[in-house]
Write a protein that binds this DNA or RNA. Structure first.
Length: 539
RNA sequence: GCGCCUGUAGCUCAGUCGGAUAGAGCAACUGCCUUCUAAGCAGUGGGUCAGGGGUUCGAAUCCCUUCAGGCGCGCCA
């Protein structure tokens, strides 16, 4: 619907010889009496053309093709308000019913290659809530970008090298020693939690006392590999059960084995961004606005995590993506500048990489925040939450906030099956419609537009607005906009459902209303699919 | 101390890179099940957009500043 208006606006601008390269903005007016859709275009153009907005608006209004409009008004400081013809709205409805899911296909991406890297949790422990939120957002983002014409590739970067996995190995080694009766304290920096003991037990079952009597240095390889692979396996299972699929899992170790870490530093060195100080090699990130330069090779000759991350980004860039999206936990925000610096030093435009920060999740139980500490091993895992609350609810709630905003996750509300729980509210609308179709002895056919009342026309307009919401979610890379829309439209439907009977004595009216239901069902199903949430037929 | 993020109704949060009279859900209160699922609906009240300055036709949105909260400031990852 909005695209039809935009097309006419663009054609009109062309006719008037006005250049406007941005995506033309259409919005839902604050007040319904203003019209169906409006645009602040004239006010934007006023700045460029240095003419009064009303004058521009008038010129647009008199030159635009008016076939689909009931009326076009200029209001306020220069808004152009459009009211669509009833016939046009109904033709769009017909089109939606005919095309089904194809109606929602947009070609914004035009095949541009986008890579989304997300979760990428260290394989040193189970996934927790924050990872879950990142997983839900990343997958939803992948879904909507795919659906809108991007060539999307999702990826998980496995930090299977370096200090953290070594610490994991050490932790399991010590647990193993304790299992063998040795009285050793678990050092502070080590990982705790029951899963460490489990890993030790499993190793004991395989190797018996063999490992216990050896020094860590002799057997660290065995322990580290066994442990991180086991954990990675569980992470993969958890993500799969959470409905998150990665196209590619890439290993940090591999970047060392292929020499990419080394070569990327050489490349930076050639460009003059590397220097030596205090026996270490530093990257000049301050050139790009970082607050200090960063070490890439330590004085003991080993690489920092940053070094392999540079190699990873170089690797991504060389794979020819047009856009890279990194989804990180908000606690990594201090890391953004140096990665952006490295990426720029490697020669790509910083606008090609976007880093989305996922804010913290606070878990509430009985109205009280649950304290989480990774060190103490007292954190709530994604697995626990999935098992307790269900995959759909968990995902949906993760998507009810802007990624940038703190999320309060109330377990009690999530478990409630009522209006307080937004997922059920939306799913229930879908199930209700499905149930109507089961009860009806007929289907959506012989649609008679004359039978729609004003309430229904309003609802149809709202349904047809979905592509605009979807487009905006894509352009802004913000899946939560779909979540909000779905709650909104579900509410409209529940209200409609109570006021009017779909199945009634009048066959023509019944069939016409079934078409409205069908259209809404298509939208609900599509929206939920984008979020990765099921649209149940029965509840 | 420095940097980043946040501050919108009692609570949880939307709000289009500056636009029209700032919205929703929950909670509170009042009603609605012999009719397609009450996991639902209808109605009522609720605001100094943290405070203060500035920028302009116009600010919740941009700039400065104060306050409050979160996070980050390793040759850790």
């Amino acid at each position: 619907m909005h695209l039809d208006i935009r097309d006419r606006l663009n054609a009109c601008l062309k006719k008037l010889n006005i250049e406007f390269s941005k995506t033309l903005e259409l919005e839902i007016p604050k007040n319904e009496s203003f019209g169906d859709l409006s645009t602040p275009l004239a006010m934007d153009l006023a700045k460029i053309l240095k003419k009064p907005p009303k004058q521009i608006a008038e010129s647009i209004v008199s030159n635009i093709e008016k076939d689909i409009f009931e009326s076009i008004d200029i209001a306020g400081a220069g808004f152009i308000n459009f009211r669509l013809k009833r016939n046009f709205i109904l033709s769009k409805l017909t089109s939606l019913l005919e095309k089904g899911d194809d109606f929602f296909i947009l070609d914004i991406g035009k095949g541009r290659k986008v890579q989304i890297e997300f979760v990428s949790a260290n394989p040193t422990g189970p996934l927790h809530l924050g990872h879950g939120r990142g997983a839900a957002v990343g997958q939803a983002l992948a879904n909507i970008l795919k659906e809108s014409g991007y060539d999307v590739s999702t990826e998980y970067y496995i930090n299977d090298a370096g200090r953290q996995v070594e610490l994991l190995g050490m932790s399991v080694y010590i647990a193993l020693q304790r299992l063998g009766g040795k009285d050793i304290k678990m050092p502070d920096e080590c990982y705790k939690g029951e899963y460490i003991n489990e890993l030790a037990k499993e190793l004991y079952q395989i190797y018996g006392n063999e490992l216990i009597n050896k020094d860590f240095d002799e057997i660290n390889g065995i322990i580290i590999d066994f442990s991180y692979k086991k954990i990675l396996n569980e992470i993969q299972t958890d993500l799969k059960d959470f409905g998150v699929i990665f196209d590619k899992w890439i290993s940090e170790r591999k970047l060392y084995h292929t020499g990419e870490v080394q070569s990327s530093i050489i490349k930076l060195k050639e460009k003059g961004y590397i220097y030596e100080k205090d026996g270490a090699l530093w990257f000049r990130s301050t050139v790009f606005g970082d607050e200090k330069d960063r070490v890439v090779v330590k004085s003991d000759g080993s690489y920092t995590y940053f070094a392999s991350d540079i190699a990873y980004h170089k690797n991504k860039i060389e794979r020819g993506f047009d856009e890279l999206i990194n989804i990180w936990g908000a606690d990594h925000h201090g890391y953004i500048k140096r990665v952006m610096s490295a990426v720029q030093a490697l020669g790509i435009d910083s606008s090609q990489i976007k880093i989305l920060l996922i804010q913290m999740v606070n878990l509430l139980r009985d109205g009280m925040p649950v304290q989480m500490s990774k060190r103490a091993g007292t954190f709530v895992t994604l697995r626990e939450l999935m098992d307790e609350i269900g995959v759909d609810t968990t995902k949906f709630i993760f998507l009810t906030r802007r990624h940038d905003s703190h999320l309060e996750f109330d377990v009690e509300i999530a478990k409630k099956q009522s209006q307080e729980n937004p997922v059920f509210y939306v799913q229930y609308a879908h199930a209700r419609i499905n149930s109507i179709f089961e009860k009806a002895n007929t289907e959506c056919k012989n649609i008679d537009f004359a039978l729609f009342n004003d309430h229904e026309i309003r609802l149809i307009k709202k349904i047809l607005l979905y592509p605009m919401i979807f487009e905006f979610a894509v352009l802004m890379r913000e899946p939560h906009r779909i979540t909000f829309y779905l709650q909104d439209i579900a509410g409209e439907f529940h209200s409609y459902y109570h006021k009017y009977r779909v199945i009634n004595e009048d066959k023509a009216l019944t069939e016409t209303r079934l078409c409205l239901c069908k259209a809404l069902m298509l939208v609900l199903k599509h929206g939920l699919r984008m979020l990765g949430v099921k649209a149940p037929e029965k509840m």
